[in-house]
Design a protein around this nucleic acid. Structure first.
Lengths: 338, 338
DNA sequence: GCCCCAATCGTAATCGCTTCCACAGGGGGC
DNA sequence: GCCCCCTGTGGAAGCGATTACGATTGGGGC
């Protein structure tokens, strides 16, 4: 466990620590011979500079914090989350950054978590589960901490964020449901205070309006199977069997689908259901789920990229990136020519 | 962004940094009055000690590293993973530790990732996706880095690990399948080099042996939907319709179930399928999935606890913890009195 | 009044690394 | 031959905390 320090390497090489440091960081101003000699010694002893000491002196940790609000517990139950983290981690690691995960508990706000656990330990923060007028962006801006949002907050004008084109995705999906000729069209939405929900609702409404229709109903709830199940039950009380349903997540679509089946309705015959996300197993649903694909992995990568951009050049323009969504038609919607 | 340091707090309070530090860390040897005065100033200015500086001087980072091998990409597609991380994070945060996530890429081994990215940045490592004779436990032991395994490596005698009782879970499930009177019983297992797979297979075989039966077939593969689907297709080539199938994950069970349906077999009538994990939406499967429940969240917590134990007292006995599994009967297995 | 000890607090070293600044030596321009 | 500059190197001051060690004070026991 007793590892060498730069001092010992310097002694072994008969030079000063300054020179060793220069070699480690690939700086100029080192004679090619000494450089090689030092490199050999470093390699022979398997020396690695101590990350902490390096960070302290550089005032740079190469750590990115991911704060998951306790209200976003559902994130964990969602494949969305894992894929997002994977994307963020992949890009971060590629750029020699690490990801620090931190969940806020009931008792502690994000800002307390930051000051208690994360201050000095991260270069910036990745903010998930953004809601409209999110208090977190306020204190982050005020505190001058670099950050990037996954999702948008229209009330926060010039901040870095990455989002997918929810409006368009919902629009396409709704339009498709209309084309299938369903009498009534419902939306099982996410939590109302999230911009992601609001923009999907906008797309939903736009498609209906263009067709001269109005929404048969909109319900809000978390992005979970349970919520989808409950919402569908609610809807089924006041709907016929010929309806189209757009869910704001594949999980909700899954839950809704189960609710229909329980009542003996065959999904993809009379009623149609469309999900959102295209989680890896959506194609294995019964029936395979028609859904709006989001490039989740890529969103994670982009978010990390945006944050690292902010970290490395704080005065640069914020990155505001909206990635495309795409309707994937499978069998949970009825056949167009049926 | 310009935050106060302990020096400035000391000046404001008219004391030395030593005293401020003593107050911050709740040490003795500080007059009650001065303590209060300093505390007030700290609060007024919202001072938080710089985590890095603190760590450097304490030689303690309060960071736990989680290394996810690139070969375990499937982990991310599994709800198991998110739940595990959630458990680890919850316990870690409660003990004022942070979780650092690091995925190894194709080009870099765990040990390279550690030395390049994590050395000096973490107090210990949480090791996922353990295989039998895992090289990682070797270099970790050699390097003297505290660590804890999620899952077991029977070849590594005295290390901390947390696992669930896979043998017993598989035994119970298999026994249940036998009781249902199925002619043939299959196992869709995980990767063969994992102890988790081997021990489940042991439970599977034990149950069969006790009943005087022998396995109809065992196939190995990753814990994914795709693998379950493929394995079931393989099995269906050489099986009748009256068989029981135990899968090593809910995802595999899900995939297998889809394969059966594609051939018009009704799962839970003739053939029975049992999963493993009891992921949150297993009950919403069609049909609701009979499965072996693992306490995943708790495993995460325990693993963090074991690691922190090793970190804080390296000479303490390793924690070796096996958590119970439980068969949850739903409708993907046929009714006992049918 | 002297000595000793407990309580309280400060000085300075330390953690391991980066980097500013100074300095030595050699070569080229004049 | 003198001066300047450029290259290569080392000394030492940071980064922001913790803490070993020492110093000061005041009070109690004699």
């Amino acid at each position: 466990m007793q590892r060498l320090t730069i001092v010992e390497i310097a002694e072994l090489a008969g030079v000063s620590t300054a020179t060793v440091s220069r070699v480690l960081n690939g700086k100029r101003d080192v004679n090619e011979q000494t450089r090689r000699r030092i490199q050999q010694i470093i390699e022979r002893y398997g020396f690695t500079p101590h990350a902490l000491a390096r960070s302290l002196s550089l005032k740079k940790t190469n750590n990115l914090g991911v704060i998951i609000p306790h209200t976003a517990d559902y994130l964990f139950s969602s494949p969305y989350f894992a894929e997002l983290i994977r994307g963020m981690g992949e890009y971060a690691n590629r750029r020699s950054y690490r990801l620090i995960l931190s969940t806020t508990s009931e008792e502690r706000s994000s800002s307390e978590v930051y000051h208690g656990l994360l201050y000095g330990a991260v270069d910036g923060l990745l903010v998930l589960d953004v809601r409209v007028g999110d208090e977190r962006v306020l204190w982050l801006k005020e505190a001058g901490i670099p950050f990037a949002l996954v999702g948008q907050d229209p009330k926060a004008p010039s901040v870095s964020f990455v989002d997918s084109d929810n409006e368009s995705g919902a629009y396409q999906a709704t339009k498709y449901l209309i084309e299938l000729g369903h009498e009534e069209i419902f939306l099982v939405n996410g939590p109302q205070e999230h911009w992601v929900s609001q923009s999907r609702e906008q797309g939903f409404r736009r498609a209906l309006k263009e067709a001269g229709l109005s929404p048969a109903g909109i319900v809000y709830g978390p992005f979970t199977v349970e919520a989808g199940f409950a919402s569908a039950q609610e809807i089924l009380k006041r709907a016929g069997s010929d309806f189209g349903l757009l869910a704001a997540s594949d999980l909700q679509a899954f839950g809704a689908s189960c609710a229909l089946k329980q009542l003996g309705l065959e999904v993809g015959r009379e009623a149609s259901i469309i999900g959102f996300d295209d989680v890896p197993w959506a194609q294995y649903f019964d029936p395979p789920l028609t859904t709006v694909r989001q490039p989740i992995f890529q969103i994670g990568q982009e978010a990390a990229r945006a944050l690292i951009g902010q970290v490395e050049s704080p005065d640069s323009e914020p990155i505001r990136s909206v990635l495309p969504t795409q309707l994937i038609v499978r069998q949970s919607t009825r056949s167009p020519d049926g």
